[in-house]
Design a protein around this nucleic acid. Structure first.
Length: 358
DNA sequence: AATACGGGGTT
DNA sequence: AACCCAGTATT
């Protein structure tokens, strides 16, 4: 019931003013119109969408409309109560979206709360020392995101007077904000009707509208996402696609038996996708970058190079010095580490730490 | 187009 | 141990 209240509040904010599912049926705005000749040509050419329609006994636009209705209806009943769904504050939305890049929802939540408690506004983040931002970022991973987020906050404050631009094109210029995140902020914070896709949305759109064998490229996904985007209620539609991808239409084991799109999907009953091979993590350069940042978080004044080497790997010796230098220079290029010479020895620290002020 | 970039829960 | 994840920037 609490969840329902949240959703109603959000729906009202979205100015949807639409509480009866029945109203969706008559909403001509739910799918782009397609002329009869276009429709016939699709069938003649046996296009993918046309074939789906044949199999499902529906025209493509009927499938789109039915999916829109069914999915948003499901989302309104089943949406998880996630912290970033309770706000339209662009700063909070941005923080959530950046944290969610390549990181699961459940893992983000506690970091999100802590981060916003410490940096509640874009001004607070912009005026903080980068070292502290990296420290509060903690073990979330992809530490460059913390640097990008801090730089983005400074840009918002300095260039935009603390007010976020609402357009995707402008948002996308911010550091660490790519096509997906810019679209998400424009839609989730500003209510813009924007089509975008991430791994979840791409998988859902591909399975539902194209089929299990389809391997659409970026361009094709852009066009598909745009074509199926409702003329209004973009917020709920996009959230719903991700919700379905995360909870039902998962990569490995899709749960078609409980999917709200039963009967509307081109890939019903599909096998999960095969596993891809990934490189070893432990012992990798990436692994040691993480170790180094973790150690430096605990040492605000910085750590001499050789000591740092011993702290991050047991087999460190002077022969590994060049290796360590290389890794640190990479971190320095990314803005995650500062290298300084003090009393004849090199010291590494997080950028903007207190010690640099001396 | 390919690659680097973290870390932890799940299988 | 391998795999996956609300991507982005760089080469």
């Amino acid at each position: 019931m609490f969840r329902a209240r949240i959703l109603v509040a959000v729906a009202e904010q979205m100015d949807s003013g639409l509480s009866e599912v029945g109203m969706l049926d008559g909403a001509a705005s739910w799918a782009g119109e397609r002329t009869t000749s276009e429709r016939l040509s699709m069938r003649r050419e046996g296009s993918a969408a046309g074939q789906v329609a044949e199999r499902l006994g529906q025209s493509p636009e009927e499938q789109i409309r039915a999916v829109q209705r069914r999915l948003v209806d499901w989302y309104r009943r089943e949406a998880r109560d996630l912290p970033w769904r309770r706000t339209r504050d662009p700063y909070r939305i941005l923080v959530s979206e950046v944290m969610l890049q390549q990181t699961q929802v459940e893992r983000v939540i506690p970091y999100y709360e802590v981060f916003l408690a410490r940096f509640p506004t874009v001004e607070a983040l912009a005026s903080a020392a980068l070292a502290e931002v990296i420290a509060v970022w903690g073990g979330l991973g992809y530490n460059r995101r913390a640097v990008y987020l801090w730089r983005a906050a400074r840009e918002i404050v300095e260039r935009w007077g603390g007010r976020f631009p609402g357009e995707r094109r402008l948002l996308e210029r911010l550091p660490g904000v790519g096509r997906y995140t810019a679209g998400a902020v424009a839609c989730f914070a500003f209510g813009e009707r924007v089509a975008f896709w991430d791994t979840n949305i791409a998988r859902v759109l591909r399975r539902v509208f194209l089929g299990p064998e389809a391997r659409p490229g970026r361009r094709e996904l852009d066009e598909l996402a745009e074509r199926v985007l409702p003329l209004d209620r973009a917020y709920e539609w996009n959230q719903a696609l991700m919700e379905l991808g995360a909870r039902i239409c998962s990569a490995r084991r899709p749960r078609c038996e409980i999917c709200p799109l039963c009967g509307l999907c081109r890939s019903v009953g599909t096998e999960g996708e095969s596993r891809r091979r990934g490189g070893r993590f432990e012992g990798s350069r990436r692994y040691y970058r993480g170790r180094i940042v973790a150690v430096l978080r605990q040492h605000p004044r910085g750590v001499p190079l050789d000591e740092l080497g011993r702290l991050v790997r047991a087999d460190y010796g002077c022969q590994a010095r060049d290796w360590l230098r290389g890794v640190l220079e990479g971190l320095a290029r990314d803005g995650l580490v500062e290298l300084a010479e003090e009393r004849g020895e090199y010291v590494a620290r997080l950028p903007g730490s207190e010690a640099t002020e001396r």
